[in-house]
């Protein structure tokens, strides 16, 4: 019977199906591979630094002076990064959540449809362009208003980074607000609450874990941002607790110094070391944010 023979799987087809599924699978796990490779390379290249430079001196050292006397104190960079990030979050959070509530909940349709794309454009402006514009506008502005000798300060960096993180904070908060079921709104309105009371007593609390995730993802962007801070925070690796002084962040240090290092040298390895710290910090931030995002998905 010819039909019986045809019915059997051909060896060729079995083989072909096998190859295709393996091929697709390899592409499928690419992101795991990339993440693993990045981590492995950061560790591999920073091994030399962590094995030869005392860890305590690194983590508590107050001087970063790699070329003059091979001092790799992490504190100034950490303080610089935290200062800029803290300032940026302070500015970005009220702005971002305010815009998200207005656009997501209060604005009339027409206003929303006009304003949303404009804010989305902000996300597409490259960070080097924002850094450049900050250099030409925010920096002189900060210099003049506080009558400083130099406008390249932590505050200038915070302002630009705040705007850079806004698209992330706004769009994810707005998603969370939109995900609040209409039934809750109607129930509140039916009980005699007006729109604003419904918004801040029902909608915002319900969306709060999504809004928190948005802030964390924004924070992740701020900590990882390189070019703008490199251009406008002044890059001075001293420990200062003032927003009106130049600082230097972890990211800017890597970008500014990598070009001067000897490949495989201690300085080179140290930069991979602080890259590893940066990776772990942003990884934790994103991981936590993702947990929050998943939680809203599960609740709603």
């Amino acid at each position: 019977m010819l039909w019986m023979e045809k019915f059997k799987k051909s060896k060729f087809r079995i083989f072909k199906t096998f190859l295709i599924s393996k091929f697709v699978f390899i592409n499928g796990i690419i992101s795991i591979v990339v993440l693993g490779l990045i981590l492995a390379f950061l560790i591999y290249n920073s091994l030399k630094f962590f094995s030869s430079y005392p860890f305590f001196d690194f983590i508590s050292g107050t001087r970063w002076s790699p070329t003059v006397n091979e001092k790799f104190g992490f504190v100034p960079l950490m303080v610089g990064s935290l200062e800029v990030a803290f300032g940026a979050i302070l500015i970005a959070v009220p702005l971002g959540i305010g815009v998200a509530i207005y656009i997501g909940e209060l604005a009339p349709r027409l206003v929303r449809e006009t304003l949303k794309p404009i804010i989305e454009v902000l996300a597409t402006i490259p960070s080097v362009v924002l850094g450049f514009i900050g250099l030409k506008t925010v920096v002189p502005f900060v210099k003049n208003i506080f009558s400083l000798s130099i406008g390249l300060t932590a505050l200038s960096g915070s302002i630009i980074l705040a705007f850079m993180s806004l698209p992330t904070i706004i769009s994810i908060s707005e998603d969370a607000i939109n995900a609040v079921p209409n039934g809750l709104r109607n129930a509140s309105l039916a009980l005699g609450a007006n729109k604003w009371e419904t918004t801040y007593k029902i909608v915002v609390p319900t969306a709060s874990s999504g809004i928190l995730a948005a802030v964390m993802l924004g924070l992740g962007r701020i900590i990882g941002e390189t070019m703008a801070v490199l251009m406008i925070t002044g890059n001075s690796p001293r420990i200062v607790f003032s927003w009106l002084q130049p600082v230097r962040t972890i990211t800017a240090t890597i970008a500014a110094e990598m070009g001067e290092t000897v490949q495989g040298g201690l300085h080179y390895s140290a930069l991979f070391g602080i890259g590893l710290v940066l990776f772990l910090v942003t990884f934790l931030t994103n991981f936590t944010a993702d947990r929050f995002v998943n939680r809203i998905r599960n609740i709603i």
Binding site: M1, W3, M4, K6, F7, K8, K9, S10, R13
Partner: peptide, 18 residues
């Protein structure tokens, strides 16, 4: 047509043509 279509070596592609 006399062939158990749930046997392991049956090709579902051929089956679905038929």
């Amino acid at each position: 047509d006399g062939i158990n279509i749930y046997k392991n070596n049956v090709d579902v592609v051929e089956l679905r043509k038929k």
